[in-house]
Nucleic acid binder design. Sequence first.
DNA 1: GTTGACCTTCGAGCATACTCTATACCTTAG
DNA 2: CTAAGGTATAGAGTATGCTCGAAGGTCAAC
Lengths: 127, 127
Amino acid sequence: MRIAELERRTGVNRHTLRYYEKEGLLQEVARRGNNYRDYPEQAVQRVGMLRQLKELGFSLKEIRQVLDALRTDSIDCEQGAALMADKKATVDRKIAELRKVSALLGREQRRLQESAALQRQQGRCRA
Amino acid sequence: MRIAELERRTGVNRHTLRYYEKEGLLQEVARRGNNYRDYPEQAVQRVGMLRQLKELGFSLKEIRQVLDALRTDSIDCEQGAALMADKKATVDRKIAELRKVSALLGREQRRLQESAALQRQQGRCRA
DNA sequence: GTTGACCTTCGAGCATACTCTATACCTTAG
DNA sequence: CTAAGGTATAGAGTATGCTCGAAGGTCAAC
């Protein structure tokens, strides 16, 4: 598919897609005779994963490492496995931290909601 | 405490601490007679939470909203509760996504590890 | 072959989040 | 009093990750 379609299907700006390619995040982008980029169907998923990881706080550099390892082939298996383990540990740590944050936000939300209820009965908010 | 101690205890550059203050992320920083900043003990925790949220992919702007709501007082309870609920939903969504990523990384790690084992027995990596 | 909708590259510009430098004031030890 | 070291502000500089516009090539329809 051409860049316009990938842009439409991923919601990612075409300039950004070219930027990702330049930064090595989207490899093996074929070109047609006219020099137009010709993305494989797979690219949609790849860009999706990229954006997801980015949203989760990973830098493009880190994401590239993971995506590279997922493409494998060029990378040593042992090394790839270690990278995956490392990234998984990072992700698991993030999950644990987010759980705490979620719990904290939940508690705070309930507290404020109760205050709001009181506020409706009485006067001002006394959080 | 003065800025040097907060820097030491949080591991955050003093220039960054002043930057956070300027951006409204650290409010109520008292000044001594000599105009030196005098942070309350609490600031250590606040900076810690800030950095943690940042690490998890939140922008300083988003973090400020949450920290502001946690300080409450100035904010409407109803509104604060809604913000907390909203941020909690975001966090919970992130957790769900990270679980998927973690699972994927785990699968990939095992696959590469098996390939590495085969590789040791036989020849090259065939991932 | 001209129009219009694509596509290309290149380089400038921008927002965020620091990070550092310069200049100067404050404080404490010797 | 002076030197050393901590602090202040202001503003410049940097890294990352986009985002955009200009100049020009490609292509299908008319």
